[in-house]
Simulated scan of single mutants.
Amino acid sequence: MATIFSGRAPSLVSPAIIRRRLPLVGVFFVVSVGFSNLCPPLHSPFYIKTGSAQSLPSVPLLSTQSADKTVHAVKMEANSDTVPSIVVYVTVPNREAGKKLAGSIVKEKLAACVNIVPGIESVYEWEGKINSDPEELLIIKTRQSLLEALTEHVKANHEYDVPEVIALPITGGSPQYLNWLKNSTRD
């Protein structure tokens, strides 16, 4: 299996075999993380009372403790060392454009970190035509308060007429990372 993903022997395995085995990743995820971690809590506004879900156990299958140390996660609103933070997705046409935009975002302290994910394919409708283009994805970690300035920066420095800027909330995580995010961005 290691040779499949390392690229050493790509002709030995057909894409059909890889596609058939990929659903196992989802099963492994559910078993590792636990079904209860995938469902909203009963007090969540997203919980829909159906009657059958109430009988499921809510015991996580993955422990957050190891023998030598404990993992501590924090909710954003519960820690004064952090600020409300977001992850922003921006697609770019190629690596050069991504590196240039990512560098300018971090230099301006509009984000603490930008990941560049290569090799995505975007299928979309534009001007009445279905398009399919190779792109790269920027995953930008920043303060929620910087979204408007970040959006304006992307629009001013992006070659697309309508660049993608989609923000998702960070609801918790490593206190040290979230504190670093806060300290690495402007107020």
Rank of each mutant, 00 (worst) to 15 (best):
K155E: 09
L138T: 01
P84C: 04
G98D: 03
T50L: 14
A78D: 15
H158Y: 07
K109H: 11
T142M: 03
T64E: 08
L178N: 01
K109I: 09
I48D: 05
T151K: 10
P60F: 05
T50V: 09
G173S: 02
I139E: 04
T3V: 13
A73F: 15
T151F: 01
K141P: 00
K155T: 05
Y124N: 04
V117R: 10
A112K: 01
P40R: 06
Y177R: 04
P10N: 06
N79P: 01
I140L: 03
S80F: 06
L22K: 07
G103Y: 03
P169G: 02
S36V: 12
V90K: 00
F46M: 09
S132R: 12
S14Y: 04
S55A: 13
L56A: 09
D133L: 08
S63M: 08
H158W: 10
P134I: 06
V162T: 10
K129Y: 05
P10Q: 08
K107M: 11
P40Q: 07
M1F: 13
V27G: 11
S66P: 02
V59F: 12
K109D: 03
K182M: 06
T91C: 06
S66D: 09
R186L: 11
V90T: 11
F46D: 15
L62G: 10
L181V: 07
Q65F: 12
S11V: 10
A167Y: 03
K141V: 03
S184F: 02
Y47P: 03
V154G: 01
R19Y: 12
I120Y: 08
E136Q: 01
P118Q: 10
S32I: 09
I4T: 09
I18P: 01
S14T: 13
L62V: 11
E127C: 06
A102P: 02
P175Y: 01
L137Y: 01
T151V: 05
L12Q: 12
K182Y: 04
V83C: 08
E96C: 04
A102Y: 02
R19W: 11
T142I: 04
C113Q: 06
V88Y: 01
P57W: 05
S85G: 04
S80K: 13
S44R: 07
V162F: 06
G26I: 04
W126H: 02
I140V: 15
A73T: 14
E135W: 00
A102V: 08
A97Q: 08
S132D: 05
P10Y: 10
A73D: 14
N115L: 14
V165L: 03
A67F: 09
V25T: 08
L12D: 14
G98Y: 00
V59E: 08
N131R: 09
I86C: 07
G26V: 05
Y160K: 03
F28D: 14
P175F: 02
K182R: 15
S52E: 15
A2G: 15
P10V: 08
A9E: 14
P57G: 05
